[in-house]
Amino acid sequence: MSKYPANVFVDYIDQTTIAIFGKKQDVRYSLTLDNMSSNSEYYASVLLMHPSAANRHTSDALTNQLIRFLSKKDYQEITILTYFPYKVAIAEELYHLISESTLAEVLRKNHKAIRQQIKRSTVFILAWGDRPTYIPKKQFDYALRLFKNMVIEEKCQHKIHLFTYSHADSLSVSGQPANPYRKYIETIEPFDIAAIREEKS
Rank of each mutant, 00 (worst) to 15 (best):
S2R: 11
S2A: 02
P5N: 03
Q15R: 08
T16N: 06
K23G: 10
Q25H: 01
Y29G: 05
S30F: 01
S30E: 05
T32C: 05
D34E: 09
M36F: 01
E41A: 03
E41M: 01
Y42F: 11
L48W: 04
M49F: 03
S52K: 09
H57A: 00
D60Q: 07
N64M: 04
Q65A: 01
L66Y: 08
F69C: 03
D74V: 01
T79G: 03
T82N: 15
P85C: 08
K87R: 14
V88H: 02
I90F: 03
A91E: 12
E93A: 03
L94Q: 09
Y95S: 06
E100N: 09
A104W: 00
L107N: 11
L107P: 02
K112S: 08
R115A: 14
Q117N: 15
I118L: 15
R120K: 14
R120I: 06
V123K: 15
F124G: 04
I125G: 04
D130Y: 04
R131D: 09
I135Q: 10
K137M: 10
Q139H: 12
F140Y: 15
D141G: 02
V151G: 02
H161L: 11
L162C: 10
Y165P: 11
S166H: 15
G175H: 04
P177E: 13
A178P: 12
P180T: 13
Y181L: 10
Y184K: 15
Y184M: 03
I185F: 04
E186L: 14
E186S: 13
I188Q: 10
I188R: 12
P190L: 06
A194I: 09
A195D: 07
E198A: 07
E199G: 06
